[in-house]
């Protein structure tokens, strides 16, 4: 029995601990150890579950790296070619948008501030898009 009291009078007039196992400190000790184990297990799982939920790390062997480098190099080839003719002609709005974006890139390229410029382009793009929406 977890009750430290035998009669209701004893319970209702108690001046002191009235909780379960108040007369059995060993049980309380076991429960506190159990609590500490739960906390430790929680901390342990917080690391292992992170690993379980994230995708497996990419392989770093030489063959994979070689394939990735080759794929990256091939992707650059496309930059030297003109736009694909199969691509649909841009609408008037997007042509004006692209012109505005291209103009805004020139001074940035000269300054070599591509990192900061990227943010500026995004802001410009947003404001231009909004302007066209309002028209």
């Amino acid at each position: 029995m977890s009750s430290p009291f035998k009669t209701f009078q004893e319970f209702s007039e108690a001046k002191g601990p009235i909780y379960t196992f108040a007369n059995n400190p060993a049980v309380i000790g076991v429960l506190i150890i159990l609590t500490a184990l739960i906390v430790l297990y929680f901390l342990y799982k917080s690391y292992t579950m992170g690993r379980e939920s994230t995708p497996p790390a990419p392989s770093t062997n030489s063959a994979t790296l070689g394939a990735l480098i080759l794929a990256s190099a091939l992707s650059l080839v496309g930059l030297s070619q003109p736009s694909s003719p199969s691509r649909p002609a841009p609408e008037a709005n997007s042509a004006r948008w692209e012109r505005a974006t291209r103009n805004s890139l020139q001074p940035l390229a000269l300054l070599g501030m591509l990192g900061i410029g990227g943010a500026a382009v995004q802001r410009k793009r947003r404001s231009i898009t909004r302007r066209y929406r309002r028209q």
């Binding site: 977890s2 909780y19 379960t20 196992f21 108040a22 309380i28 429960l31 506190i32 159990l34 609590t35 739960i38």
Partner: peptide
């Protein structure tokens, strides 16, 4: 309940 019991 003792707090440790409530935790369990």
């Amino acid at each position: 309940y003792h707090p440790a019991l409530a935790i369990v």
